[in-house]
Nucleic acid binder design. Structure first.
Lengths: 148, 148
DNA sequence: CCTTGAACTCAAGTTCACTTCAACTTGAAC
DNA sequence: GTTCAAGTTGAAGTGAACTTGAGTTCAAGG
């Protein structure tokens, strides 16, 4: 346990949590202590990368589960997945840029008008789901009980 | 209450919460119901804009408090503040771009090596504070009890 | 006056991704 | 055989930003 914690950079408690969540597997020694196989380190690296991209535990579980045979990602898997994540990052970047350019357009206007200012406009930001572009995608909003 | 909720786009409960947190003010009718002045709508617009940029309630309280005389932002205030937020957004964008280019560099490598892959490298991501560039700034990581 | 929808308060609940705690057990080294 | 750091468990705690619920009161229309 101490070793995998040191080598993966995750706290022991996090590793236990991931096991409980089914993201990794461990078998046990006679006395009930966890013993990990080498591939768990790769899975943990995958988990870290995924969570850096902003995926939730649930999404990570799905991605790992989509790997045929529920195996540790291979090179081909990783290529496919990294393209997918790249698109996700692009969206996040674009969303921030929209926000930024809205802000630039606003500099000097001093309006903060409720309906017309692109930056604070509640219709864009929190209008009906599915209608029109939002300034920030859910993934970049601070997680919120009801919004997500 | 219903009116300000409709016009600001915030749920009534959120507005009560902001009042409790001291972000907005309300005086009361004879029977104890809230009555809002017009400027509260502007403050709420400000709050929405700020939280879109990723500020916490605490930070928003500070920004509002820094306004001389604790007033509703004027044009000049707004210019100063929006430059500040612009820098913050730039940082967030840059962070995502670093992550993206790390990912691009990784596409096809299939490594996910624990120590050498720039994308999952735990030393960059979660090493000592202050050491070297991180892939994601705290503001873009999913908020986390101990990390922030 | 009566009804009814809107507002009130206060405490407790929600979500996520973990951490912390308390009480206890293992297992490697000496 | 003793020691003790390191491991185990399950339950509870954390923080942010609100929401929900229960029970009560307000106020405008008829």
């Amino acid at each position: 346990m101490g070793e995998i914690s040191r080598r993966s950079g995750f706290a022991a408690s996090a590793i236990r949590y991931y096991e409980a969540e089914g993201l990794i597997e461990a078998h046990r020694s006679g006395g009930g202590q966890r013993r990990f196989e080498r591939n768990v380190l790769r899975r943990l690296a995958f988990i870290r990368a995924a969570s850096n991209v902003g995926l939730t535990i649930e999404e990570i579980r799905e991605e790992l589960g989509r790997l045929p045979g529920n195996r540790t990602p291979t090179k081909a898997d990783w290529q496919r997945i990294s393209r997918h994540w790249g698109r996700r990052l692009d969206e996040q970047i674009a969303a921030l840029q929209r926000l930024k350019s809205g802000l630039d357009g606003c500099i000097g206007c001093g309006c903060l008008s409720l309906r017309s200012c692109a930056f604070s406009n509640p219709d864009d930001v929190h209008g009906e789901r599915g209608a029109g572009a939002r300034l920030l995608p859910d993934s970049l909003r601070r997680p919120h009980p009801t919004r997500r």
